[in-house]
Simulated scan of single mutants.
Amino acid sequence: MTEVVDAQRRQFLFGRFVQEPGASEPPVAVIGSSCFALQGIACMSCRDACPTGAVRFELVLGGARPRVEAADCTGCGDCSAACPADAVQLSFPESVS
Protein backbone atom coordinates (compact mmCIF):
# COMPACT_ATOMS: atom_id res chain seq x y z
CA MET A 1 0.00 0.00 0.00
CA THR A 2 2.85 2.40 0.76
CA GLU A 3 4.36 1.96 -2.72
CA VAL A 4 1.07 2.89 -4.38
CA VAL A 5 0.70 6.02 -2.26
CA ASP A 6 4.33 7.02 -2.91
CA ALA A 7 3.93 6.47 -6.67
CA GLN A 8 0.78 8.61 -6.67
CA ARG A 9 2.52 11.35 -4.69
CA ARG A 10 5.49 11.28 -7.06
CA GLN A 11 3.21 11.54 -10.10
CA PHE A 12 1.32 14.43 -8.53
CA LEU A 13 4.54 16.31 -7.80
CA PHE A 14 5.61 15.97 -11.44
CA GLY A 15 2.23 17.21 -12.70
CA ARG A 16 0.87 13.78 -13.62
CA PHE A 17 -2.45 13.07 -11.99
CA VAL A 18 -3.54 9.55 -11.14
CA GLN A 19 -6.97 8.48 -12.25
CA GLU A 20 -9.40 7.14 -9.73
CA PRO A 21 -9.02 3.38 -9.16
CA GLY A 22 -11.45 1.45 -11.33
CA ALA A 23 -12.14 4.44 -13.64
CA SER A 24 -9.89 3.05 -16.36
CA GLU A 25 -6.50 1.43 -16.66
CA PRO A 26 -3.47 3.75 -16.51
CA PRO A 27 -1.21 3.94 -19.56
CA VAL A 28 1.56 1.37 -19.86
CA ALA A 29 5.04 1.86 -21.32
CA VAL A 30 5.61 0.29 -24.72
CA ILE A 31 9.14 -0.06 -26.12
CA GLY A 32 9.49 0.59 -29.84
CA SER A 33 11.91 -0.70 -32.45
CA SER A 34 14.18 2.36 -32.21
CA CYS A 35 15.34 1.15 -28.77
CA PHE A 36 19.12 1.09 -28.61
CA ALA A 37 19.13 -2.23 -26.71
CA LEU A 38 17.14 -3.86 -29.51
CA GLN A 39 19.83 -2.67 -31.93
CA GLY A 40 22.63 -4.25 -29.89
CA ILE A 41 23.74 -1.03 -28.13
CA ALA A 42 24.15 -1.29 -24.36
CA CYS A 43 21.54 1.05 -22.89
CA MET A 44 19.33 0.59 -19.86
CA SER A 45 18.27 4.19 -19.25
CA CYS A 46 14.58 3.27 -19.08
CA ARG A 47 15.21 0.57 -16.49
CA ASP A 48 17.32 2.91 -14.37
CA ALA A 49 14.62 5.62 -14.46
CA CYS A 50 11.68 3.35 -13.60
CA PRO A 51 10.64 3.95 -9.97
CA THR A 52 8.67 0.69 -9.72
CA GLY A 53 11.08 -1.66 -11.55
CA ALA A 54 8.51 -2.39 -14.27
CA VAL A 55 11.13 -2.16 -17.03
CA ARG A 56 13.31 -5.24 -17.00
CA PHE A 57 15.94 -6.70 -19.29
CA GLU A 58 16.31 -10.32 -20.35
CA LEU A 59 19.64 -11.73 -21.44
CA VAL A 60 19.43 -13.15 -24.95
CA LEU A 61 21.97 -14.11 -27.56
CA GLY A 62 23.51 -10.83 -28.69
CA GLY A 63 22.71 -8.75 -25.62
CA ALA A 64 19.86 -7.74 -23.39
CA ARG A 65 16.28 -7.10 -24.50
CA PRO A 66 13.84 -4.83 -22.66
CA ARG A 67 10.38 -5.81 -21.55
CA VAL A 68 7.74 -4.04 -19.51
CA GLU A 69 5.83 -5.76 -16.72
CA ALA A 70 2.42 -4.18 -17.32
CA ALA A 71 1.20 -5.11 -13.84
CA ASP A 72 4.02 -3.09 -12.27
CA CYS A 73 3.87 -0.12 -14.66
CA THR A 74 2.14 2.96 -13.21
CA GLY A 75 2.30 4.97 -16.45
CA CYS A 76 4.38 7.71 -14.82
CA GLY A 77 6.45 8.29 -17.97
CA ASP A 78 9.85 8.46 -16.27
CA CYS A 79 11.19 5.76 -18.62
CA SER A 80 9.97 7.66 -21.67
CA ALA A 81 11.64 10.88 -20.55
CA ALA A 82 14.93 9.06 -19.89
CA CYS A 83 15.09 7.21 -23.24
CA PRO A 84 17.78 8.74 -25.50
CA ALA A 85 16.24 7.08 -28.58
CA ASP A 86 12.64 8.21 -27.89
CA ALA A 87 11.68 4.54 -28.13
CA VAL A 88 9.38 4.40 -25.09
CA GLN A 89 5.80 5.56 -25.48
CA LEU A 90 2.85 5.37 -23.11
CA SER A 91 -0.16 3.51 -24.41
CA PHE A 92 -3.50 2.70 -22.86
CA PRO A 93 -4.08 -1.06 -22.63
CA GLU A 94 -6.96 -2.57 -24.57
CA SER A 95 -9.95 -2.95 -22.29
CA VAL A 96 -11.42 -6.42 -22.24
CA SER A 97 -15.16 -6.50 -21.59
Rank of each mutant, 00 (worst) to 15 (best):
P26N: 15
P27M: 09
P27E: 10
V28G: 07
V28Y: 12
V30S: 13
V30E: 12
V30Y: 12
I31K: 01
I31A: 01
G32T: 10
G32W: 01
G32E: 07
S33I: 13
S33K: 12
S34I: 05
S34L: 00
S34E: 11
S34Q: 13
C35M: 07
F36Y: 15
A37Q: 07
A37H: 02
A37I: 02
A37L: 06
L38P: 04
L38T: 10
Q39M: 14
Q39I: 11
Q39H: 15
G40E: 04
G40D: 00
G40N: 01
A42F: 09
A42T: 09
C43G: 10
C43E: 12
C43H: 03
M44G: 06
M44P: 02
C46L: 10
C46A: 05
R47I: 01
R47M: 14
R47F: 06
R47N: 06
D48Y: 05
A49G: 00
A49D: 00
A49V: 07
A49Q: 09
C50H: 05
C50R: 07
C50S: 13
P51F: 15
P51M: 13
T52Q: 07
T52M: 09
T52S: 03
T52L: 07
T52V: 12
G53S: 03
G53P: 04
G53W: 03
A54K: 12
V55M: 11
V55A: 09
V55H: 08
V55E: 08
R56L: 07
R56C: 03
F57I: 03
F57T: 06
F57A: 10
F57S: 07
F57G: 11
E58F: 04
E58S: 01
L59P: 05
V60R: 15
V60A: 15
V60N: 11
L61W: 04
L61T: 14
L61R: 05
L61K: 11
G62A: 08
G62E: 02
G62H: 02
G62T: 06
G62Y: 04
G62C: 06
G63V: 10
G63S: 13
G63D: 10
A64N: 00
R65M: 08
R65W: 06
P66R: 05
P66M: 03
P66N: 02
R67E: 06
R67C: 01
